[in-house]
């Protein structure tokens, strides 16, 4: 029979867990969101990933490897979700991901427009961009994560950024105060 875990031991484990994954949770959510383009699904993916991290915490000794482990786990959870539930990749209405501040400034309008453009990217282009910009992955790291060649990753990043930055150029340029 296993020994019950005491309150002190649990608290210590939770502190270690917070130290290990706490700083990564926000970016993990952002990456999950751009992977599945659904806020609630992203929350579920992150919750599931962190739950697994909790269970395997004692085996994750290398702090540097934690980030890559979390991303790999989340990607697999995302893939399982589609295998299990046979979710169809349909055009989804963009969930409201604004922070609800009611900001009607030009900056908010631009952000909203960029969100639409990012949503419109194919998965193949959107994911490497998210890995690079949100998680700071290098081309080599993206290639390893997505099981692609470096040249394929570079092509996708170039095309994604070109599509989006061309769109940014199209937006009317207004500066605050005039």
């Amino acid at each position: 029979m296993s020994k019950p875990v005491g309150a002190t031991e649990m608290s210590s484990k939770q502190h270690r867990f917070d130290a290990m994954v706490g700083a990564l949770t926000d970016d993990l959510f952002r990456y999950a969101y751009w992977l599945c383009r659904d806020k609630h699904l992203a929350e579920d993916l992150v919750q599931e990933t962190l739950l697994r991290a909790w269970r395997f915490m004692d085996n994750l000794r290398d702090v540097k490897a934690v980030k890559s482990w979390l991303i790999t786990t989340l990607r697999r959870e995302h893939a399982r979700l589609y295998e299990r539930k046979r979710l169809q990749r349909v055009e989804m209405e963009m969930n409201d991901i604004s922070d609800g501040a009611g900001d009607t400034s030009w900056a908010a309008a631009e952000i909203s427009e960029l969100h639409s453009r990012i949503h419109a990217l194919t998965d193949d282009y959107r994911e490497p961009l998210a890995l690079q910009v949100i998680l700071g992955y290098s081309v080599a790291e993206i290639a390893e994560t997505m099981d692609l060649s470096k040249s394929a990753v570079m092509t996708r990043l170039f095309r994604a950024r070109k599509q989006l930055l061309d769109a940014v150029e199209d937006l009317p340029e207004q500066r605050a105060g005039g």
Binding site: K39, I111, H115, I118, V133
Partner: peptide, 11 residues
């Protein structure tokens, strides 16, 4: 600006 758009608010 692209990065700001990608860094959406977190619940």
């Amino acid at each position: 600006r692209l990065e700001a758009a990608l860094r959406i608010p977190v619940p």
